[in-house]
């Protein structure tokens, strides 16, 4: 009884401010903004803590996302490496002009000077017969056998780098004819067929990776959507109560959007780890392969900016997946 009386007194104190208006207490705009920000911070940290409280489950979900992200990213990186390699060869979409064997050095210099004036030619490398022979000795494996020769059988070669590359086959052929017209030139070699095939192959590969990446992105959206559907279902009661006491849709939505964001970031981080591990595993064979192609190309691993793009992308996917799930399921949960 005494308790009740004291409660009464408290009640009178509690309510004295309200009686006059009978209105809900008003909150200022700045307070609202502060509260909005505070709720963002709370949702952000609470959703992370919630995920960490079930570490195995969270890890598995992130792993699925990571695999779905790592697969197309890995393919894309390999394709980029192949393109880089191809670019190296593309630049060597060069012509080899073999000069007549008896050409005098002065005439050769004159010819070089006149060719260099041609606007279609970017640069000319002159390979003298002596230099060609020593290179041939080094790479052909014939070595000393060549030393037995009485005279150098090799002609002077102009390695001509045209300005326009294989996009413009006709111009290249025209250039070839122009050069061949010179009496000092024996033949001009220009092989475009295999370059074009490589180019087409790379285009095909690129499309394949884009298609795969799109499909797997949808997969990631669905994974996150489904995971969040379960999370929403688990917190149905809380959602109903929150809506009942005046929680807006935004308020209810917020923690779930952050959950999706965290899944995206977690999946992205894991996929980076996967890519690095796989990259290390593949590094040796790739390097020896490159060695075989005498290419100077550096191994196209994950750059910092690529990691940033990947994390940003996966975070966006997570956020988006959460939106899809939340938009579909939160509307269905209303107090009854």
């Amino acid at each position: 009884m005494a308790k009740r009386n004291s409660a009464k007194v408290q009640g009178a104190k509690l309510s004295s401010a309200k009686v006059s208006g009978g209105k809900v207490s008003r909150v200022s705009t700045i307070d609202l903004l502060k509260a909005w920000w505070a709720h963002h911070k709370d949702s952000c940290s609470n959703s992370l803590l919630r995920l960490l409280s079930t570490p195995v489950q969270t890890f598995l979900t992130c792993l699925v996302i990571a695999i779905a992200i790592a697969l197309p990213t890995g393919l894309f990186l390999s394709l980029q490496s192949a393109q880089q390699l191809g670019q190296g060869w593309q630049d060597s979409a060069q012509m080899s002009a073999f000069l007549e064997r008896g050409a005098k050095p002065l005439a050769i210099e004159k010819l070089q000077a006149s060719l260099e004036k041609n606007p279609s030619i970017k640069s000319i490398d002159v390979v003298s017969p002596a230099k060609a022979l020593s290179e041939f000795q080094r790479y052909s494996g014939l070595g000393d056998v060549l030393l037995e020769l009485d005279e150098n059988p090799l002609p002077t070669v102009f390695i001509i780098q045209p300005v326009n590359t294989l996009d413009d086959t006709k111009q290249l052929s025209a250039l070839q004819k122009t050069i061949e017209a010179s009496p000092l030139i024996d033949t001009v070699q220009l092989d475009l067929g295999w370059l074009r095939r490589l180019h087409e192959l790379l285009v095909l590969g690129e499309r394949f990776v884009i298609a795969l990446a799109s499909l797997l992105s949808i997969g990631v959206l669905l994974i996150i959507g489904n995971t969040l559907r379960l999370a929403i279902e688990n917190r149905r009661e809380e959602i109903v109560v929150t809506k009942m006491v005046g929680g807006t849709n935004g308020f209810v939505r917020r923690p779930f959007l952050y959950t999706g964001l965290w899944y995206g970031i977690g999946g992205g981080l894991l996929s980076v780890v996967l890519l690095i591990v796989i990259g290390l595993w593949l590094a040796d064979p790739i390097n020896s392969l490159i060695g075989l192609y005498e290419s100077e190309y550096s191994q196209g691993g994950l750059s910092v900016s690529a990691v940033a793009v990947l994390l940003l992308g996966s975070a966006c996917l997570g956020w988006l997946g959460a939106w899809v799930a939340v938009a579909r399921h939160l509307r269905q949960i209303e107090p009854t």
Binding site: V27, D31, L32, A35, G246, F251
Partner: peptide
């Protein structure tokens, strides 16, 4: 909960 929702400090 209702106070959090209405944005009270």
């Amino acid at each position: 909960l209702p106070l959090q929702i209405s944005g009270m400090p």
